[in-house]
Structure formats: structure tokens, C-alpha cells
Design a binder for these strands. Structure first.
Lengths: 157, 157
DNA sequence: GGACGGTAGTTAGTTCTGAGAACTATCCTG
DNA sequence: CAGGATAGTTCTCAGAACTAACTACCGTCC
């Protein structure tokens, strides 16, 4: 692999714009495809709550790597639609526990089927290994912004 | 590896979400590091106009895969800041041609240098293999989004 | 048991980016 | 010239992210 000594900073910059362009387009695309009356963000949130079990708003924020106010809003939207239920914690009354309602589970199932159709129709080229690459890339990106001088709330995580 | 079958698509939504927030945060970080008062979208637009030469608003919209109203606003913001100049087309008075002003070029240059500096520092901490992952991810995203069917308004071009 | 510092969440307000509908101006065609 | 297509613009709305400032609560310590 003849280490590309990071020096090639020009490539680096264009890499950043390529990623930005690609990611942005994908996000827009998914949004326009998502007619399930649930935005991609909410779909993702639903998926997170489904996969990673009941969690508190704070845990949710950390998991999604968003700030607490954003988590509040997202959760509120889901609860408002009856897709997520919150149960107060009997021991710590500051927190509550979030989990999918049965309605949320049903909708999530529908979304998944729909999305699979979308993938089949348009993105058939996305092989599991490519998905894995994207996953890894997401992780790397997240680490990339964490470094010194993270502008906010860093120490909490 | 050996990823379980069609990683069900909400994963794709979640993945897209993670990528989006990751890229967005990186972009904002770059913005603050570069000490340039230009949103990520505007920076990208500037780059597009620089790389792909003078173009009309419509061409710009198609290139960025955004709708015309969004293009209008983006362009207006750049023109307002004196970073882009518009020249009327002498033959077709509906259209105009957009290109960077010298000020825009200077600013873009500065932005690029600072981004390079920041990214070089950050990416130096990555292993070559991780860099390669990012490269590959960018490629996958490009393939994914440039292909079939701009979601709507497609037939126009 | 009451003051206190820290943690969890929420509210308020701002910014950025996108979309659709309806409109104007212009071009082209018959 | 009438009628339709094309290019852009304006207006209005929505989603999602952020920060700052707040409330409510916990645990501790005197």
C-alpha cells in the first residue's frame, strides 16, 4: 500500500468535499424518498430505540451524537406521534425511559419494508461490504471532529 | 466481515444520519477553524463554481442536485457577499452566467489552505487504512447518488 | 435537615438548508 | 401574434441542528 504519507493534503481537501457532496446528496435523496410521513432523522431515531433498547434521553443523545436539546425535540416528535412511550424512572425522577410503542414497532416494520423496496429498486448496487465501509467511515468521521478544542460539551461524553 | 444479509434498511437511514451529522459537524468545525463566515453549503457552492467554470443557475442546480429555488437563494447569498458575479447572457435574456469574483477566488483559496492545514493535522492521526476507507466511502457515495434518477424534475436533464 | 454543586432535561431563540406553489420574463413555434 | 415551454425568482413553510439559559432533581456535606 506504500503509505500515502498524509502529506498529500490536496487530496485530503478534495476528499472532504467529495464526502460532503456525497453525503449531502444521499441525505436529500433519502428524504425525498421517505414519504412514510416520517423524516429520515425520525426513522433513524426509531431504529436506534428499537435496536438499542429502552434508553434515557441523555443516552439517546450520546448515542446519536447530538446535543441534548436536539434529542429532546426528536423524542418529543416521536412521543407526540405515539411511536414512542416514555416511562418515568421510579428512582431518579429527572430521567425517563424511552421505548417503542406497538404502533412505533408497526410503523418501523412498514418503513423497513418500504426502504428495502427503495434499495432494491434504486440502490441495488450497495453490497454489504460497501455498507460496512460506510459504517466505518461514519465512525472515523465522528472521531475526526472529537479532537482537541471540541467547541462544546465535550467533557461530558 | 460476513455481514448478515441485506442489512435492513433502517440501518441505511441510521447510517445516512450518522454520516450526515458527522460531515455536518466536520464542516462546521472547518468553518470555525478557517475563520470564514461562510456556511458549508456556500463553501461547497463556491467550490463548484470554481471547478466547473461559469455556469447558469439552472446548471448549478442540476449539478448540486438541488431545486431551483434553493439554487436561487444560494447564489443570491454569494452574489450579495460579492463572491460571485453574474453576467447576463446576451442571447438568452432569461439566463445569466455565474463565476467567481476575484474576491471569491481569494476567499476560496484561503478557505482551502486552512482546511488543508486542519485536515492534514487531523488526518495525520489516522492510519492509512482509515484514510483509504474514507476514500472508498466517498467513491461509494458518488456512485450511489450520481446515478439513476434525480428524484424529480428529472426529465429536464 | 437545609444549603450547595453537579447532572438530566427542557425551553427559547437562531441558523442553515431544503422543498413546493405560484409568479414573471423570456424564448420558440406555428 | 397566440400559446406553450423554459429559466429564474419570490414567498412560505418545515426539518434539524446549535447555543444559552433555565428548571428539577440528586447526592453530599456541614
Amino acid at each position: 500500500m506504500c503509505v500515502p504519507s498524509v502529506a498529500s493534503s490536496v487530496d485530503v481537501a478534495s476528499l472532504a468535499s467529495r464526502l460532503r457532496t456525497g453525503v449531502w446528496r444521499l441525505a436529500r435523496r433519502l428524504r425525498s424518498e421517505a414519504d412514510v410521513d416520517l423524516s429520515p432523522t425520525l426513522q433513524a431515531a426509531l431504529g436506534t430505540l428499537d435496536r438499542h433498547g429502552p434508553m434515557t434521553p441523555g443516552a439517546f443523545a450520546r448515542h446519536e451524537q447530538i446535543r441534548k436539546p436536539t434529542a429532546t425535540r426528536t423524542i418529543a416528535a416521536l412521543v407526540e406521534r405515539g411511536l414512542v412511550e416514555r416511562t418515568p424512572d421510579p428512582l431518579d425522577r429527572r430521567v425517563s425511559w424511552l421505548q417503542l410503542s406497538s404502533q412505533g414497532r408497526r410503523l418501523l416494520g412498514r418503513v423497513r419494508r418500504r426502504h428495502d423496496a427503495f434499495l432494491a429498486a434504486r440502490l441495488a448496487a450497495l453490497r454489504p461490504e460497501e455498507l460496512a465501509t460506510l459504517e466505518r467511515a461514519a465512525g472515523i468521521l465522528e472521531r475526526l471532529t472529537e479532537g482537541p478544542g471540541t467547541p462544546s460539551e465535550g467533557p461530558e461524553g
